[in-house]
Amino acid sequence: MGAVEVRRARDAELEAVALLRWRMAHEHGGDVEAASEAAAAYAAEAAAWSRAHADSHVPMVAVADGAVIGCAWLAITARVPTPGALERRSGDLQSCFVVPERRGAGIGRRLAEAVLAEARERGLEHVTVHASPASIPVYERAGFRANPRSLHADAAIPER
């Protein structure tokens, strides 16, 4: 296994990034086969979405031996102006995924660090992440900390 490069995704890699998102969504049950017709259609549509949202969603990739083996997204959100700062933005780390056979080697941490570096470069105030219990140590190693001021509520309408 070759060295792993972590960086912003290139346009030609957006379909591969989308296929990782497909795998992420189907990892625990269901068809994870990236070659399926549904996955290919999703990849094309999601890559087009990525191009259309390039100003607000920045994909990062981990690449080894020419293959995209991991991804993470920086979603950028405008914030309400304050008297001292009319232009404010924050970020959210989203959809961080590393292929199962490459987990445990620090790739997820490196992707999270790349998202944080991009956020700093863009002058964002802070970055949040919604983490599974298993991934919390990965994000903590990258520099994330629990914040007692943050709360979470699901906005979806509950089923009756």
Score class of each variant (00 low, 15 high):
A52M: 06
V129Y: 02
H53T: 14
R160A: 11
D31L: 09
A52G: 05
A41N: 05
S95D: 15
D55K: 13
A3Y: 07
A12F: 03
D55V: 04
L74M: 03
H53F: 02
A156M: 13
A112R: 07
R8K: 13
E45A: 15
A18R: 04
A114D: 01
R88F: 13
H57A: 12
A119T: 06
S95T: 14
M1D: 08
E27H: 14
R120S: 11
A142W: 06
V68C: 12
A40H: 14
R160V: 06
A9N: 02
M60N: 02
M1T: 10
A41F: 00
P148I: 09
H57Y: 14
I107D: 01
G108L: 09
V32R: 08
I157G: 02
G123H: 13
R110H: 11
A72L: 04
R122S: 10
P148C: 05
E118V: 01
L124E: 03
C71P: 00
F144N: 04
R8W: 08
P158G: 02
C71H: 09
E113W: 07
D65L: 06
L20K: 00
H130S: 09
A44G: 08
A40S: 11
F144A: 04
V58L: 15
A146N: 01
R88T: 10
H126S: 14
E113V: 05
V6G: 05
I76G: 05
R79W: 05
V61D: 06
V17R: 05
A43M: 04
V127L: 11
E13S: 06
L111P: 06
D154C: 03
A34H: 00
